[in-house]
């Protein structure tokens, strides 16, 4: 019985944390380039509403996903324009985009309320792998394609960031833009790309919610997930591989708070668990590794202006 609980937790943590993972991966790249995007929540919800609208109109959920990604990208570009080209306060820019996105999505989605999505993304069960004892049912049964894609994406992004020239370029822009500039790297162009990519990923994350996780549109349906993704970015120490672990851990504790544990621990205390465990986990990491563990990109949140300083 306890084994079953563990296996179920693994399966559900994967499904629940998929949007968190996608959004966090995007934000990791954004922040690695030195820009903070507090607009993740707004970009996610725009992705969710546009994804639903296109999905409902065409019956093609993967086309809808594409359009949602595009909308996320556009919002990312808006954030890039404001925070890089205009060199305006990137924190306020992100917050405004969140407020704007929550409002606009509600406006766009007004007539879609109370409708189920006609064609939702299907669950898949991976042949052969799902027959592995224990792990088969936990990892490879009845998951959405985007869940696997998220995991693969994390690995690709990790490899790309650490082992390719492009990845090095991105990191150098976030760590030391001046040195990167001297070396001939177009700092602001790289940042533009990274921020737009972050928007794209947030759009996908939102579309997962309205096309797969809960195939319908409801106002405010992201319900703070964008903020959790931002927190997970830090929790993952800006590393795509660790983002898998961070979002999985959060998802596991989220799921556990609704299991039969509720009969053992008061549910109102249990629902705090994911948040408490995040702090505990960070503290444990810090105790183990010391301050060095938390190497945020050196130039995070600092705009780069050629000729300054």
């Amino acid at each position: 019985m306890e084994l079953e609980l563990i296996l179920n937790t693994i399966a559900r943590a994967l499904a629940f944390s998929t949007p968190l993972l996608w959004a966090a991966l995007g934000e990791i790249y954004t922040e690695r380039s030195g820009v903070v995007n507090l607009g993740v929540e707004g970009m996610m919800i725009m992705g969710a509403v546009v994804g639903f609208m296109v999905g409902q109109a065409t019956g093609l959920p993967y086309l809808a996903l594409l359009v949602a990604a595009l909308v996320g990208t556009l919002m990312g570009l808006a954030h890039a324009f404001i925070s890089i080209t205009l060199n305006a306060n990137q924190f306020v820019s992100g917050l405004s985009l969140t407020i704007f996105g929550l409002g606009l999505s509600g406006l766009l989605g007004r007539s879609y309320v109370g409708q189920p999505l006609n064609v939702a993304m299907k669950s898949v069960t991976v042949p052969f792998l799902s027959e592995i004892p224990l792990l088969g049912p936990a990892l490879f049964t009845d998951q959405k394609l985007l869940t696997y894609a998220g995991l693969i994406m994390a690995i690709i992004l990790w490899f790309f960031l650490n082992y390719t020239r492009w990845g090095m370029t991105l990191r150098s822009v976030g760590e030391s833009p001046k040195a990167a500039d001297t070396a001939g790297i177009p700092v602001n162009q790289v940042r533009y790309l990274a921020v737009a990519f972050g928007g794209l990923m947030a759009g996908v994350a939102g579309a997962y919610l309205s096309l797969a996780y809960r195939p319908s549109w409801g106002e405010g349906m992201t319900n703070g997930m964008g903020w959790i993704a931002l927190a997970l970015t830090i929790f993952a120490l800006w590393d795509p591989l660790r983002a898998i672990g961070a979002s999985f851990l959060f998802g596991a504790f989220f799921y556990l708070s609704f299991t039969k544990l509720q009969t053992v621990i008061a549910p109102e205390l249990l629902t705090m668990m994911p948040y408490i465990m995040t702090i505990v986990a960070l503290t444990v990491i810090a105790l183990g590794q010391g301050k060095r563990a938390f190497g945020a990109p050196e130039a995070l949140g600092i705009p780069y202006q050629r000729g300054e300083r």
């Binding site: 799921y255 609704f258 299991t259 109102e268």
Partner: peptide, 17 residues
């Protein structure tokens, strides 16, 4: 118990559990 009137993710995971 969700301890929320509006919590789609919580409702989903509670049902799954």
């Amino acid at each position: 118990w969700l301890f929320n009137w509006f919590d789609p993710a919580g409702a989903k995971e509670a049902t799954e559990a």
